[in-house]
């Protein structure tokens, strides 16, 4: 459904994503892992159509990322991005105006569960509240693909549970969820595949069950092997 072929992005002399080829299928929840600078965010931004590749391709259902993919793909960045004159209500209206799969009802439900109110001004939000608002408006869409970049960052434990719940609720056999996070342990039970990126390269994609059954390792164990000091890869 979502596929990158030798996808590369360079910023001047710096390579953010280096010939990464990944093929993602619906009906799965993928955890994209790696320290800062490994290429997760840039890969996601290319999938979301915000960044144009330097070389290689990124395809949605076989066609290059563009207007059609943006209709089906819900991307949530790590950074805040709402217009600063907006209230939470305005943000919802904006999404409703541009995305046919947005449900205002679900939005209000999520706002409530995250303990946010529609009259809150985006410029007055703390970083935690902003993180919750971003998630609420993104998950209020009934998209085919969700690309969530660090959705659990800066969020308190209870709200994190709510977010995990809405992530699971939004999953389905025709849906693809890609979540990147530093909080590897939080994703252990909900991800069925782990994608490891290191220094702009793809290290491996592995089914979490395979790690456990064949190697007796958790995702966190494998993470430490790959990125820890003394890790061969």
């Amino acid at each position: 459904m979502l596929e990158s072929r030798e996808l590369t992005k360079k910023y001047g002399s710096k390579t953010a994503v280096d010939h990464v080829s990944i093929s993602l299928e619906p009906g799965h929840i993928y955890a994209m892992l790696g320290p800062n600078g490994s290429g997760k965010t840039t890969w996601m931004k290319m999938a979301g159509g915000l960044v144009k590749p330097t070389s290689g391709e990124i395809l949605y259902n076989g066609a290059p990322i563009g207007i059609n993919s943006k209709r089906d793909i819900a991307y949530m960045s790590t950074e805040p991005y709402f217009y600063n004159w907006m209230t939470a209500k305005d943000v919802g209206k904006y999404y409703q105006d541009f995305f046919a799969d947005f449900s205002m009802e679900r939005y209000h439900e999520l706002l409530e569960r995250m303990e946010l109110t529609p009259d809150l001004k985006t410029k007055a939000l703390s970083s935690g509240m902003m993180a919750k608002l971003k998630i609420a408006v993104t998950m209020a869409r009934d998209a085919r693909v969700y690309l969530l970049d660090e959705p659990l960052n800066g969020i308190d434990l209870l709200a994190r549970d709510e977010i995990m719940r809405s992530i699971l609720q939004s999953s389905g056999s025709d849906k693809l969820l890609l979540i990147s996070s530093h909080l590897v342990e939080e994703l252990e039970t909900i991800a069925d595949y782990a994608i490891f990126l290191k220094q702009s390269h793809l290290i491996e994609i592995v089914a979490t069950d395979t790690l456990r059954e064949e190697q007796g390792k958790s995702v966190a164990d494998r993470y430490r092997e790959i990125y820890g000091h003394g890790g061969e890869n």
Partner: peptide
């Protein structure tokens, strides 16, 4: 079951 236990639906 997935929602209650916080696990992947395929699991």
């Amino acid at each position: 079951l997935a929602l209650v236990h916080g696990i992947n639906p395929n699991t």
